[in-house]
């Protein structure tokens, strides 16, 4: 099933299989140093604090590759770019030697406020021009590519003039940014908007995709919510298989943020991805 690897634009590495670093597992990780190829952190949880989370992160970053993934960069917002926040991101990235950093294709607030949610933009030419310009500005400032994720969306603006997958593909190419393809979000969004997830995946520019997300969600019947509170469903694994077929291997991460289970359950769940990756097993960390 595995195909020859399609390199990404930046030759960023396939880090293997990782999970989101969550406070519940700090103790377990720093006592046992369990097998895991890499960790993804929620950037904002380690900014404006010098407490316990950063103390553990410093130790973990010495032994595992770290990727930074944020939720408040708000690249779609019409507010001015917050360069002070970018400085904080850059400082954290330097501290943990982040392999890459990113956020979502969305906006989180406007007029100086923050809703702490991932709001969709209208998929219009104006929206695209705005976001391309913002992403370029941010990338120039940070001097590295941004890795942006397709969000789960629950509404469609009447003014949208192109499908989400076209907007994202054009954004990646025109802003020359990297993509984090969340296949669970593809599933959720397509269910919510009655779209074909395979067509969505086939529209992606895979030379821009450097990372993949897997997660569980809640199916309310009328719509799905991206809750990250359970195992990955079989339909999402099928979508993952398709992405793997297209790329030949991308850094793959399991998100599990609510009803967080024991670390061994995360290892087992993300380990299922190895069946698409020549049975590659999770690696033990290097000694600090």
């Amino acid at each position: 099933m595995t195909q020859a690897s399609l390199p990404n634009r930046w030759n960023l590495p396939d880090l293997g299989l990782g999970v989101g670093l969550r406070t519940q597992h700090f103790g377990h990780i720093t006592e046992r140093w369990p097998a895991m190829d890499w960790f993804e952190i929620l950037s904002e949880n380690f900014i404006d604090t010098e407490g316990r989370p950063l103390y553990f992160l410093d130790q973990i970053a010495e032994r595992y590759p770290i990727v930074m993934h944020g939720v408040c960069l708000s690249v779609g917002s019409t507010d001015p770019v917050d360069f002070k926040f970018l400085d904080k991101l850059a400082a954290l990235a330097k501290r943990v030697k982040a392999v890459w950093l990113g956020d979502h294709i969305c906006w989180t607030g406007v007029a100086g406020l923050n809703g702490h949610d991932l709001y969709p933009v209208p998929y219009t030419e104006e929206g695209l021009r705005h976001m391309v310009s913002r992403v370029r500005t941010i990338q120039d400032y940070l001097e590295r590519p941004l890795v942006l994720e397709n969000p789960s969306t629950y509404l469609t603006f009447a003014s949208s003039s192109m499908p989400e997958e076209e907007f994202i593909a054009r954004l990646a190419v025109e802003a020359d940014c990297a993509l984090l393809l969340d296949v669970n979000n593809v599933y959720v969004t397509c269910r919510n908007h009655d779209l074909d997830p395979v067509a969505y995946l086939d529209a992606m520019p895979y030379e821009h995709v450097v990372q993949v997300h897997l997660a569980g969600h809640t199916d309310n019947g009328t719509h799905c919510i991206d809750t990250h509170d359970g195992r990955v469903i079989e339909e999402v694994w099928k979508l993952y298989a398709r992405v793997h077929q297209k790329t030949g291997g991308r850094a793959t991460l399991l998100e599990w943020d609510a009803n967080v289970p024991k670390f061994s359950v995360l290892q087992q769940e993300v380990g299922k991805a190895s069946r698409f990756r020549n049975g590659a097993r999770l690696a033990r960390p290097v000694a600090a």
């Binding site: 007029a111 406020l113 003014s159």
Partner: peptide, 16 residues
């Protein structure tokens, strides 16, 4: 079609 800024301010006012 409403401008992007208008849509964002409107949606924020509604959801908050």
């Amino acid at each position: 079609a409403p401008r992007l800024e208008t849509i964002e301010r409107w949606m924020q006012a509604v959801v908050m």
